[in-house]
Amino acid sequence: MKTKIKVFRAIHNITQAELAEKLGVTRQTINAIEAGKYAPSVELALRMSKMFNVTVNEIFQLDDE
């Protein structure tokens, strides 16, 4: 799964630690998601999309898309 969290973090000018704190997860979890090592739950993906004010599909894409 590909992710654009890093891009949206840059647009909103927030660090991994700040994003993690806002979402109530550890910074390591955000890092693992960005590195493509962990696929977040639907709930976390929805909370992320709400935070960045975009759809889930804009943040996460399947590898073959």
Partner: peptide, 11 residues
């Protein structure tokens, strides 16, 4: 619980 308990720690 860990200090910050999240879904990845659950996994």
């Amino acid at each position: 619980k860990e200090k910050t308990e999240d879904e990845m720690i659950g996994l």
